[in-house]
Design a protein around this nucleic acid. Structure first.
Lengths: 356, 356
DNA sequence: TTGTAAGCGTTATCAC
DNA sequence: GTGATAACGCTTACAA
């Protein structure tokens, strides 16, 4: 019994050879089984290459029978395209996570790109992750995490296009898709003030969250403009428990109820609402108005009907993936920010006055 | 001005050369800047290789200044390890998505492996995705989606270890981490029956969901054992709206209220609960008991306190990632199933009798 | 249209 | 400990 392959091996011969050597199927195997050159095989897998119908058929037949699949690593080595997109999410995004990710995976998938996922423990933890991103030679990155200026610069230096999601750089222009948190916050304050609310309190998000900072800023600015007292601000962690804890802290701080509690996100608003109603026996919005931010699904559930600001997550996700694929294909152009507006969801947890 | 590099180029020389040629930094560049051979550079980036301290320092200095990062594609080509794990989720898993993904990303990350994400539109849609998985030569796969026997066989043939999450194959042994849905369902039925419930109804999950099938099976089997009437089963989509719709359908079908409505997951249970209380003005659990499945966070919120079965998602995720990394390192061994139990969360939406 | 051959950037093997 | 040199599996001129 010899292991030397016959000069014109059949598909079965090749199959057995591969099996006996316990290795993966390569384009050479397909070529030898189909009786063509290796480059012919390669061309058959490249859309729009020039191959005769007969050759194509023979190659595909062999490829199918041998379970051949091109090796992405080898391809990426020569083409300098990995077809990989790094998606970096800080755990805080948790709310829209599923929606964002499945949408991104779908969008990029349609362009033949795959999502390489990086999940950060904390908002600012991207540092250690960067090395991994470089190694995998991703074609682009979508970042929902805080990026420092030097880190952004390194993306530039390596010529890796990136888009920030709901984040911007303090200085320097970068591509970003954001929701105007400040505008939204101002709008909500206006509507609340128009309904006669005077004493405001706020449950703030984590200190390292850029989005939380903007929301807080918008609220404070609009209150000042309206000549109303600055809100009592307590801090929260964007989670359900923070909402209840925050409310108690506010009541203790004020020695009574404020007119409105504005929460940094829906999750805290729901926690605040539940504590107000079920633990403190308060009437919302009768005695107290409660508002959120985000417009996540549970906010619309019948038990809550939360008054909140909806971010157009779907549109933002779409815009971000489109922007990134655009950057990858036609590299160049100057940085662009696409700013979406948040819309007030009237709900039933706050008395609102007329819009501006 | 010449572009020929000097015989002993400085780091700055090399830097400029790379820049002028607009290419990525390779180990050759680092080698030439550090005045060593390319293989020396390679060794410096391989943990536990034999390099002298002096060489290591020189190489690292040059590497840092040049922003050199090894190319994962080239490495993967020669080592036959991509350090990539395919994680395939059907959209239905949406509930625990964030928790599962961030945990997996963390776990695999600690082993130096990255998560390549595939999000399926439907439970059974893995077919088209497989070709992508093969291309990227993943070292292993974690699948929370239905896999057919031939598909499983192809994983075997390609020697790619895989672990099913909350799924099993109808025939044939595979590695899997599951929660015993049947046992959980039976337990819950027992507790409900012990409290005197007689007429049961059920809002089922999607037909293509294996988990939903098992839950339904467990409920039906236990009811039969107890000599109770078979439940009225209406179908749902695992979403919030399905819960309310299902409840109405049940009431219409029975011409009145059942004693208990068991929902295929928490989301539908919450929808059912909201409709019962806020639209139909029913007293839950006074007039009607409602139960869920999963134990997702909102089930515990004060407005719901849902009676449900908690799946130990954290433990399951941990087990799955550990199992997969185990399979990758020490290939071989016979298929194993790790079965976790669901625990009853008593909540406040159903009257429960004593446990068995 | 097809085949030949030169890389892509690593790691691995082997002398030295 | 170090440096040649041969893979790894593919794409892509270029020649036929």
């Amino acid at each position: 019994m010899t292991h030397t392959p016959p000069p014109n091996p059949s598909i079965a011969d090749v199959k057995q050879l591969i099996h006996s050597e316990a290795r993966r199927v390569t384009s050479y195997d397909v070529a030898s089984a189909a009786g063509v050159s290796q480059s012919a095989v390669s061309r058959c897998f490249k859309p729009g290459a020039s191959v005769s119908k007969a050759t194509y058929a023979r190659v595909m037949q062999a490829a199918t029978e041998l379970d051949y699949t091109p090796n992405a690593a080898a391809r990426s080595l020569i083409t300098r395209r990995s077809n990989l997109i790094a998606v970096v999410l800080s755990d805080i995004v948790t709310l829209h996570y599923p929606q964002i990710l499945s949408e991104l995976s779908r969008q990029f998938g349609q362009q033949g790109m795959r999502v390489l996922l990086f999940s950060l423990a904390r908002e600012g933890d991207i540092g250690a992750t960067l090395a991994d991103i470089w190694q995998h030679q991703v074609d682009g990155a979508l970042l929902a995490a805080t990026l420092s200026a030097p880190q952004a610069a390194e993306f530039e230096r390596r010529r890796i296009p990136f888009v920030l999601f709901n984040r911007t750089l303090r200085e320097g222009a970068v591509n970003a898709v954001v929701c105007d948190q400040v505008q939204g916050a101002r709008l909500l304050v206006s509507r609340l003030a128009a309904a006669g609310h005077k004493r405001f309190a706020m449950i703030d998000g984590p200190h390292d969250s850029a989005v939380a900072q903007e929301r807080k800023r918008g609220v404070a600015a609009r209150l000042a403009e309206l000549g109303l007292a600055a809100p009592l601000i307590v801090s929260g962690d964007y989670d359900y428990a923070s909402g209840g804890r925050g409310l108690r802290e506010i009541i203790a701080g004020l020695g009574g109820l404020p007119d409105a509690v504005m929460c940094g996100n829906d999750l805290m608003a729901i926690g605040c609402l539940d504590t107000a109603r079920h633990e403190l026996g308060l009437d919302v919005p009768g005695q107290l108005s409660v508002t959120g931010f985000d417009g996540m699904a549970p906010a619309g559930w019948l038990s809550y009907k939360l008054t909140t600001l909806r971010q157009p997550v779907q549109s933002m996700t779409l815009a971000a993936s489109a922007m990134l694929t655009g950057l990858i294909c036609s590299s160049g152009g100057c940085p662009e920010r696409r700013v979406f507006s948040a819309a007030v969801v009237e709900g039933a947890t706050a008395r609102l006055g007329p819009g501006a």
